[in-house]
Nucleic acid binder design. Structure first.
Length: 321
DNA sequence: GCCCTATGTTAAA
DNA sequence: TTAACCTAGGGCT
């Protein structure tokens, strides 16, 4: 699935193309027909993200909550105001980036016929957005939305597309102040170091940190030289703080770039003449989906195993127990 | 066509 | 800890 950086990009994109617009809301597939009817004709006030959760606030006092899960994706199209609006969600092949439409402007004649299983379609005067394959898609109240966000761990990307930028939500703003700045780092350290659970599992726990997924889990543990099996309780507060700072750093890059790149330039492959090769996609990761390949730092093979039913990639040499 | 995979979560056992 | 759920694409037969 799109990890947290993709959802923050989505919130920003909804804000850019739909905020203030009255929307026709439908469910071409039919599975969200009743929910769509409750939103149809309402105006979008703001879009915001917390971790992998996307919230769309409407002027009729309702909120559309979407979680993309493993397969979900949004696609967009429209007139010149939708220029740069990209498809964001599950990639259709490994290494695919979120795509940008940089082509010449085309006359906008309204949304196309729905293709495939479109759960939700939003249409304004200027363009449309289609949602396919989400794991969650429901209409809730603002209080319920705040409850969902409040249960999650701190979001390293808070501020990237925060409600403080996007709109006014007093409950959410209150929660933000509790999680602001160093407070969020401290909250992460507290939650990470509270349990004996392996740090590799804790990073995937959205109640410890909201927005990290399998790629950022593997890559940030590698970058910090941490064994995935180290119990949270045995991670020093100092190391937990450095881990948080690294997560903030690489996920911030992900929001900017629209793809996950965690390698430092000195660790990327070169051609036989020593010239740099393209960063994307083959030079983007240290360990994710590189099992059996030589570690970029030590040269020993990258390992793969299962942890809590998810693939875990790591370097046994650089991340010793 | 069929089988597998994927940046995920939840509920049941 | 396992199964179920959601969708589309790629590799295979």
């Amino acid at each position: 699935m799109p990890e947290g950086h993709s959802v923050h990009r989505l919130a920003r994109q909804f804000q850019d193309v739909f905020a203030g617009a009255r929307l026709a809301v439908s469910s071409p597939q039919g599975r969200f027909a009743s929910g769509a009817a409750r939103l149809d004709g309402a105006t979008l006030l703001a879009a915001r993200a917390h971790g992998k959760q996307l919230f769309l606030d409407f002027d009729n006092g309702l909120v559309l909550r979407v979680h993309l899960g493993l397969y979900g994706a949004w696609s967009f199209g429209g007139d010149e105001t939708f220029r740069g609006a990209s498809s964001i969600g599950a990639p259709r092949r490994v290494g695919e980036r979120e795509t940008y439409d940089d082509g010449a402007p085309v006359a906008y004649d309204g949304p196309p016929e729905p293709v495939g299983q479109v759960r939700v379609r939003l249409v304004s005067d200027h363009g449309w957005a289609d949602l396919r394959g989400p794991t969650a898609c429901e209409v809730i109240t603002p209080a319920e939305a705040s409850a969902v966000a409040g249960k999650l761990g701190p979001d390293p990307l808070q501020g990237e597309s925060s409600p403080l930028q996007n709109g006014v939500d007093a409950l959410q703003a209150g929660a933000d102040s509790l999680h602001a700045g160093a407070g969020r780092a401290a909250e992460f350290v507290r939650r990470l170091t509270a349990k004996r659970t392996a740090v590799g599992q804790l990073l995937m726990d959205q109640n410890v940190v909201a927005g990290v997924g399998n790629i950022y889990r593997a890559e940030t543990l590698f970058r910090r030289g941490l064994s995935p099996w180290l119990p949270g309780k045995q991670v020093s507060p100092e190391e937990a703080g450095l881990l948080w700072a690294d997560i903030v750093d690489v996920m911030g890059d992900g929001v900017r770039d629209g793809k996950i790149i965690t390698t430092r330039p000195e660790h990327r492959d070169t051609d036989p003449a020593g010239r740099l090769l393209p960063v994307w996609p083959d030079n983007a990761y240290y360990v994710y989906q590189r099992q059996g390949m030589a570690c970029r730092v030590c040269g020993n093979p990258v390992a793969l195993t299962d942890m809590a039913a998810r693939k875990l990639y790591w370097c046994p040499t650089c991340q010793p127990a």
